Simulated assay, not measured.
Amino acid sequence: MKSAAASSSIEDYVKVIYSFTEWQDKAINSTQLAQRLGVANSSVSEMVRKLKDLGLVDHKPYSAVTLTEDGRRLALAVVRRHRLIETFLVRELGYAWDEVHDEAELLEHAVSDTFVARLAEKLGHPGKDPHGDPIPSEDGTVRLPAARLLSELDPGHHGHITRISDDDPELLRYLTREGVDVDALVQVGERKPFSGALQVQVTPPGQSEGHSAELGEQALHALWVADDAPHQGCELD
Score class of each variant (00 low, 15 high):
His109Val: 12
Val14Tyr: 02
Arg73Leu: 13
Ile164Asp: 04
His157Gly: 03
His59Val: 00
Asp98Gly: 09
Arg80Met: 09
Ala64Pro: 03
Ser63Trp: 01
Asp133Tyr: 09
Ile164Val: 09
Arg191Cys: 05
Pro130Ile: 03
Leu84Met: 09
Gln201Lys: 09
Ser3Ile: 15
Ile164Ser: 04
Leu185Ala: 14
Val57Gly: 00
Asp53Glu: 13
Gly233Met: 07
Val100Lys: 09
Cys234Ser: 10
Asp227Val: 07
Asp98Cys: 10
Leu67Gln: 05
Ala219Lys: 11
Ser208Asn: 15
Gly179Gln: 09
Ala34Asp: 04
Ala64Arg: 00
Leu215Thr: 09
Glu11Ile: 04
Gly38Ile: 05
Leu51Ser: 03
Val111Leu: 13
Ser195Glu: 01
Glu178Pro: 10
Pro204Glu: 07
Val39Tyr: 10
Glu108Val: 12
Trp23Asn: 06
Glu92Val: 07
Arg173Cys: 03
Pro205Asn: 05
Ala146Pro: 00
Glu170Leu: 02
Phe88Arg: 08
Ala120Pro: 03
Ala34Tyr: 04
His131Asp: 05
Glu108Leu: 14
Asp58Pro: 07
Leu54Cys: 12
Leu150Pro: 05
Ala219Met: 13
Ala5Glu: 14
Ala213Asn: 14
Leu93Gly: 13
Asp58Lys: 08
Glu178Val: 07
His221Met: 13
Ala120Ile: 02
Glu11Gly: 01
Ala96Arg: 14
Ala4Pro: 11
Gly179Ile: 08
Glu170Phe: 01
Gly140Trp: 10
Phe194Val: 09
Leu54Ile: 14
Phe88Met: 14
Glu209Met: 11
Gly196Pro: 03
Arg148Met: 06
His221Asn: 14
Trp97His: 06
Asp183Ser: 12
Pro134Leu: 05
Ala40Thr: 03
Arg91Phe: 05
Ser45Val: 11
Arg49Asn: 11
Leu149Met: 08
Val44Thr: 00
Val186Arg: 00
Pro61Asn: 08
Ala75Trp: 10
Pro126Gly: 05
Arg173Ser: 04
Gln35Arg: 14
Leu33Gly: 00
Val100Tyr: 15
Gly38Pro: 05
Arg173His: 02
Asn41Trp: 10
Ala77Ile: 13
Pro193Tyr: 01
Gln24Pro: 07
Leu106Val: 14
Leu223Trp: 06
Ala226Val: 06
His211Arg: 15
Tyr13Phe: 02
